[in-house]
Design a protein around this nucleic acid. Structure first.
Lengths: 335, 335
DNA sequence: GGCGTCTCTGTTAACGCTAACAAAAATTGG
DNA sequence: CCAATTTTTGTTAGCGTTAACAGAGACGCC
């Protein structure tokens, strides 16, 4: 096992050139005679030669790998983001190394970043949705290209994020437009920026309509916590419209409402966030807000790449607007 | 930017030893005096030294990275598997590099494997649920540690897989035990081994009970296709029990049944597969089969590691038994 | 024809680490 | 206390690549 493949010198010998010429062919250097180039390519093919990324990384100081730090990649949002990141990175010739992290506290994040750094990744993307992650990031070495996704809007770190506020505002406004007199909110964990932004947007829409926001009910993204909130909501006759911070919370709410015999959307309207693929098959099909994860991935990778190439780390910021997807879980309130 | 950090020689100079001694400390070599070890560690800490993985990979011939080839990491199964793999690998000191692949055809798989190989990964895990992936794998270089997950049971390649057959049999038997006279099946895409195994298990249970299996209805894992199958099922008065190949299909079926006014579980019982976190909050809560992704990840990594260490690639096979999770979507048939 | 100027190719020296061997220091035994 | 051993440390030589420089032809121009 571990029969090491041919190296550049083997290719060079077969093609009758120096290893440096092989290197030039590989890196698309212009000054190589066409005939030579062809001979080298033939030799590469014949030997099944594959360049050694480690050696290249050693001499150039960085590998064609992008490190990603993420927490719970089973959640729909992070998983989608990660997948999109991989796809985009692959197109640019980069591999993606994932540093999963159990908690988003200072030391876990640092450790994950360190691991990436010791592999000399070209850049790092941190999916940093909570406050504690932000702290860790500011103390990181400043000389490594880094982009955060869904991170703290108030830190001087390059950031790409879904426009949570706009999305939540749209969802809330949609319910208001349907004629509801107010909108209740089941939020995500309040230490997530995503949650904070969605609470903000919801509150803004209500305030703009001259309404007094009811207290938000805190959940934890899970259907289970949505269910618990839904049980309370179901018992409150004045509730006619609910905006939940994600689709799974909405599912739990839907289920609790169903159990209490409160019909959606006839008695209560519900709007979610994320547009998970199953949302269209909830009972009833869920009106929700769809963030464009591909766009987030593209933007963050582009930001990272420009840092890698230019060597400059501008504290850029980019916000991706989500879209409302209207389905059957919203109706005017019964009078 | 790209200020290169201190190297081993810098640490050595500060500690007043040779770089080789530093290397020994780093690699836990036994013959280093305690006092020296401490001095070296202090120097490492003082300089913030971080070993260069690329250099190490170059000289040892392999990096502390495991490559994973997977297709659609947004699906619950693959995403969970990937997350579990990362966690487990991190515990063993390995990073995970993900090679996402659009299609599981020969050339895509080969390309992804090549990319990993050129980074000199220590081993490769291929999540290869379809036939075409299997072909690609047999033509791969034999000298790289490789494990497939959810791959072809009939190929001479190390394989870890969920026991689809047993899971499906349990689900079907559960419905039979409840008193149903037969069980219908909404399957996954028939080119997935997962689907084939689940169809098999379902058929086996039926046959063992002396029943003649009705034709399986082919879906594609999505709630959407489950919905379409559900619409047909709902119109067939003789149907009282359905086993779907995953939970999302079940969700679609549930929704179609609901639309047609067919009540679950009173009129029709449904069992899914995967136990997605939301399954307990479907309407009604879904009885399903839970594969142990952590166990799969542990087993495959262990298999890979033993190949890496021993250098031997036994065509091992390991099957992880799933567990039935009983909830409210199953009841005896109405007479 | 000689000479500067391209274009192409080769030579040499790193990059930061580990492995193999060599030397020095500490320890043991008689 | 000296030799034999063992433990600890140092020295040297790569690993496979790119970068920097050097050399060899080919070409054009005075």
């Amino acid at each position: 096992m571990a029969v090491h493949g041919p190296a550049m010198t083997d290719v060079a010998r077969l093609a009758g050139v120096s290893h440096q010429t092989v290197s030039r062919v590989l890196n698309g250097h212009p000054n190589v005679r066409e005939q030579t180039r062809l001979r080298v390519r033939a030799a590469i093919a014949e030997l099944g030669y594959r360049p050694n990324g480690a050696a290249r990384a050693l001499v150039t100081g960085r590998s064609q790998v992008i490190g990603v730090v993420a927490q719970n990649t089973t959640l729909y949002g992070p998983a989608s983001l990660l997948a999109a990141l991989e796809q985009t990175a692959a197109q640019e010739g980069f591999a993606v190394s994932v540093g999963s992290v159990r908690n988003l506290d200072h030391s876990s994040i640092s450790a994950a970043v360190e691991r990436h750094l010791s592999h000399r990744v070209a850049g790092i993307v941190v999916i940093a949705p909570v406050e504690s992650a932000g702290e860790a990031l500011e103390r990181l070495p400043k000389d490594v290209p880094l982009v955060t996704v869904d991170g703290d809007p108030n830190r001087p770190v390059p950031l790409v994020t879904v426009d949570q506020v706009a999305g939540a505002r749209a969802a809330t406004q949609h319910l208001l437009d349907a004629g509801h007199h107010t909108v209740w909110h089941v939020s995500g964990p309040t230490d997530w920026f995503d949650s904070v932004g969605r609470i903000d947007g919801w509150r803004q829409a209500l305030l703009a309509a001259g309404l007094d926001p009811p207290p938000p009910m805190p959940g934890d993204w899970s259907a289970s916590s949505g269910y618990r909130c839904g049980q309370m909501l179901a018992r409150m006759p004045e509730v006619t419209a609910v905006f939940t911070a994600n689709d799974h919370l909405a599912l739990g709410v839907l289920r609790a409402l169903h159990e209490f015999g409160r019909r959606v959307p006839d008695e209560i309207s519900v709007v979610g966030f994320d547009d998970v693929p199953e949302a269209a098959y909830f009972i009833p099909p869920l009106t929700t807000v769809r963030p464009d994860f591909d766009a987030v991935a593209r933007a963050s990778l582009q930001m990272l790449l420009s840092q890698i190439e230019s060597g400059v780390s501008g504290a850029l910021r980019q916000t991706i607007a989500p879209a409302l997807v209207s389905r059957d879980s919203v109706a005017p309130p019964r009078r």
